[in-house]
Amino acid sequence: MKPPKTDSSDFILSVQNLNAWYHTTQVLQEISFDIQRHKVTALIGPSGCGKSTLIRCFNRMNDFIATFKLAGQILLEGQDLYDPAIDPVEVRLRVGMVFQKQNPFPKSIYENVAYGPRISGIRRRHQLDAIVEESLKRAALWDEVKDKLKANAYTLSGGQQQRLCIARTLAVEPEVLLLDEPCSALDPIATAKIEELILKLKDDYTVVIVTHNMQQAARVSDFTAFFYLGELVEFWATDKIFTVPKDPQTEAYITGKFG
């Protein structure tokens, strides 16, 4: 699989010969591709194709699964994320993640966003205030919550909670933002807001999104990787993959023949 031809060679993440197993079941096979800076890369494919496992490799969230094993490399700015000398906490500070189901802490809106900066040692109130405001603005939530920052995060709607989770992740200032099916629990209006937000976020961040929704991949992403049964079938510019796919399996999937 060749990387897509682009004008810029500015890749932030590089996956090289990645293999992964749960117990003895191989879930990812010889995956190699590069992710471009300040672009949105979508990972698509039917359930069980390994896309969620892959995105969780990017910030080492699979470390908590005892039976998970991995071979190969994932380079972030040329540095192997699975190098034994690297602290997974550092990886997660540089690669933020938003989950499928919105999972705010049962604390105030303010505390949700301030938590990341707080544990990395920022204590001054005015500094935290500024980070909270800036992060909520970037997540397009500020106008809706600026008068009730002390309210419990659970009082927000599902879509607002998911944008709060995005704001909370942005507050840590990651370089890469991972979104694991961020809209799967949301209604179409809330989904549209998140998609709009994703397009804005790529000015400052590199975004990787797992999605089940092919229209969503087509709408928000610059590149699309199609996975099937643990293998990377096709990786190409989104406008190409959705109009002139090279692989018959990709074509069958995006035209809805299976999934």
């Binding site: 969230m61 908590f64 906490v89 997660r92 500070l93 989770c165 992740t169």
Partner: peptide, 12 residues
């Protein structure tokens, strides 16, 4: 999901 949220923000 709460543990995951904290870990993903760089909590030990």
């Amino acid at each position: 999901s709460i543990r995951e949220a904290a870990y993903a923000l760089g909590a030990t």
